[in-house]
Simulated assay, not measured.
Amino acid sequence: MARPKNERLKARIRTAAWRLFATDGYEATSYTAIASAVGISRNLVQYHFPKKDVLAAQLFEDCLSRTCQVLGLTDDGLRNNLEAIYAVGSVYFTYLESEEGLGAFLLDVLKSRELTRASCAFNTRWILGHVADAQGSLTFDEGGKTVRALVGHMGGFYELLYFELDRGGTLDAAEALSPVMKALATALGYPMSQVYALTPRNALADVPIQSAVRKLQEAYASI
């Protein structure tokens, strides 16, 4: 069992790293900078986090969890609820690419094939952890059509996201995620009426996206 003192120190390291990711981006955030922000040695940071990408992965995970919280969604509320999953993704990516969010960090991640692949895999696992096919079977077959359809469309979404961020723009996450959600629903065997309904106008009309994004900005500004 990890000692409480070590857990507190790891939490301080995570917080310092996430703040630096937000202000300086992933590449410019060195172990030395993290250590200086915490007031410990560089070696101690590396002892607890041998790989910097672990800190990045934990930030994505934390942000996704907070997104669900600000939308008032639990795992039960997300189970087989494609509209709710769509809402989470729209808020999550809108926050990440916002100027007050993690735009510089996200762009650095998207410039790295390895980090992009890891992020795409994380998002895919999260989505498939909450959905089943039309027959009620959970979809964890990594070689199955559902995974292939989702990964393929998520890859296209990430390409669009990189294109916009790299040119200094922003992507309409809700609009860009619509084809991803439709491909997922189709692969799962959902009725075409539900597939066609997965658009911002139909599925997200009552979702307070901008309000939720502001809550995330406030939450991360105070860490």
Rank of each mutant, 00 (worst) to 15 (best):
D76S: 13
D76Q: 10
L78G: 02
L78V: 08
R79S: 11
R79N: 12
N80W: 12
N80G: 06
N81W: 13
N81L: 07
E83R: 12
E83T: 04
A84K: 02
Y92T: 00
Y92V: 00
F93M: 06
F93N: 05
T94K: 01
T94M: 02
Y95A: 00
S98H: 07
E99R: 10
E99G: 02
E100V: 09
E100I: 06
G101N: 07
G101V: 11
L102K: 08
L102F: 13
A104L: 13
A104T: 15
L106M: 05
L107Y: 10
V109Y: 01
K111E: 12
S112Q: 07
S112C: 06
R113E: 14
E114V: 11
L115I: 05
T116G: 01
T116P: 03
R117M: 14
R117Y: 14
R117D: 11
R117G: 14
A118F: 02
S119E: 14
A121C: 06
A121D: 14
N123R: 13
N123Q: 13
R125W: 12
I127S: 00
G129T: 12
G129D: 08
H130T: 09
H130G: 09
H130K: 13
A132T: 14
A134Q: 12
A134L: 13
A134D: 10
Q135A: 15
G136H: 05
S137H: 15
L138K: 06
L138P: 04
T139I: 14
T139H: 07
F140C: 12
G144R: 01
V147M: 11
A149R: 09
G152C: 07
G156T: 01
G156C: 02
F157D: 02
Y158Q: 07
L160C: 05
L160P: 05
L160T: 02
L161T: 06
Y162Q: 11
F163S: 09
F163M: 10
E164F: 08
L165C: 05
D166Y: 11
R167H: 13
R167F: 10
T170P: 05
A173C: 14
A173K: 04
E175G: 10
E175I: 12
A176G: 04
L177K: 02
L177C: 09
L177F: 15
S178I: 04
S178N: 00
S178L: 02
S178T: 04
P179D: 10
M181F: 15
M181P: 09
K182D: 10
T186K: 10
A187I: 07
Y190W: 11
S193I: 14
Q194L: 12
V195T: 03
Y196I: 13
T199I: 02
T199E: 04
P200R: 02
A203W: 09
A205V: 03
D206I: 03
V207I: 08
Q210S: 04
S211T: 14
A212M: 06
V213H: 04
V213T: 05
V213K: 01
R214K: 11
L216Q: 00
L216N: 07
L216A: 04
E218H: 13
A219D: 08
Y220F: 15
